[in-house]
């Protein structure tokens, strides 16, 4: 009897318990990191980049406004069309005298926003088409598959060129809509095949037997189970959208409402490369490349995380 009470005492000693707990927690964090470092590192870098870009854009202010303030103060020597990099101007200035670094931060922010908006729009269309088709079946499904197949082979770039020429100038909204309109088909196709395989699972059959309506099954059973997949599709689509925006801008069909990476690269092509301003055109392309590579690595590693069969090697 006495021994048992002693044991109880030891266990109930609050100090020893907390120590043990923190030790095991520390260990588990290290283990967690060791196991998932491939997922944690790119995701963290990505989140930090986004924070840095958004806070940075708010801090440095608008490039045009900033330029006006500087020229009012006569701060920079003659301000500087194509000023070389110097203190306060990490990347020098462009043809209009805007600090290229400030422009770059804004462009990255805007490109991410454009990419995210277009990507989200794409996913919405793809989810709608990929989910409704298999659930309604019959004619509707056939029509949706047919439309998807048509959009899959539709000549995107010639069409954008035609649209751009005829409309004269493009706005950011048009670009987002055009990108979204032409990039959903493959996403819809893969979401559809996911839905088809999920529909055959036991838990969906149980829901059916218990009398849930098709819509409820779609919302309660199918979508939550595809959440990780949809997230992965979204990251790819953001990548595609950022790249498409840049491509459209380089062809001279871009918008001129806001600074984006595409608009900057268009200027690079027109003047900066020919005149040999390496400090202007190298950082632009490098930023675009790095953000795309980062998102691609994040996407593949998260795919490994969600699909353990790929994780072995």
């Amino acid at each position: 009897m006495t021994e048992i009470t002693e044991e109880k005492l030891i266990v109930s000693d609050p100090n020893s318990l907390t120590i043990a707990a923190t030790k095991s927690e520390n260990k588990s964090i290290v283990l967690f990191f060791k196991r998932y470092y491939k997922q944690i590192i790119p995701t963290t870098i990505f989140i930090v980049t986004i924070l840095f870009v958004f806070i940075g854009a708010a801090v440095v202010g608008d490039p045009e406004v900033e330029h006006l303030i500087y020229s009012a103060k006569q701060d920079r020597d003659i301000l500087a069309y194509f000023a070389p990099p110097q203190k306060g101007l990490p990347l020098g200035t462009n043809q209009q005298g805007y600090s290229w670094f400030v422009v770059l931060i804004h462009a990255l922010k805007n490109s991410l926003i454009v990419g995210f908006t277009a990507g989200l729009l794409c996913v919405t269309i793809a989810l709608f088409v990929g989910l409704i088709g298999p659930f309604l079946g019959g004619m509707v499904d056939d029509i949706f598959v047919f439309i998807t197949n048509i959009f899959l082979v539709f000549p995107v770039l010639p069409f954008i060129l035609l649209l751009g020429t005829i409309m004269g100038s493009t706005s950011t909204t048009t670009i987002v809509i055009v990108i979204a309109l032409f990039n959903w088909p493959w996403a819809a196709r893969s979401i559809r095949s996911q839905v088809l395989s999920l529909r055959e699972r036991e838990f969906v059959k149980v829901s059916k037997i218990s009398g849930l309506s098709e819509i409820k099954i779609a919302i309660l059973d199918i979508i939550p189970n595809m959440f990780s997949y949809i997230f992965l599709v979204l990251t790819i689509l953001i990548n595609v959208a950022i790249l498409s925006e840049a491509g459209i801008s380089i062809l001279g069909l871009g918008q001129s409402d806001i600074w984006t990476l595409g608009r900057m690269m268009d200027l690079d092509r027109k003047t900066h490369i020919i005149q040999g301003y390496y400090h202007l055109w190298i950082p632009t392309g490098l930023t675009l490349t790095l953000i795309l590579v980062l998102m691609y690595v994040m996407n593949t590693n998260l795919t490994e995380f969600f699909n353990p069969r790929l994780r072995e090697k």
Binding site: N239, L243, A246, G247, I250, M265, D268, R269, I273, W281, G285, L288, T289, L292, V293, M295, Y296
Partner: peptide, 11 residues
């Protein structure tokens, strides 16, 4: 794969 091909063209 993920680098923008037009930037490689610039280089």
């Amino acid at each position: 794969q993920s680098a923008p091909f037009f930037w490689i063209a610039y280089i």
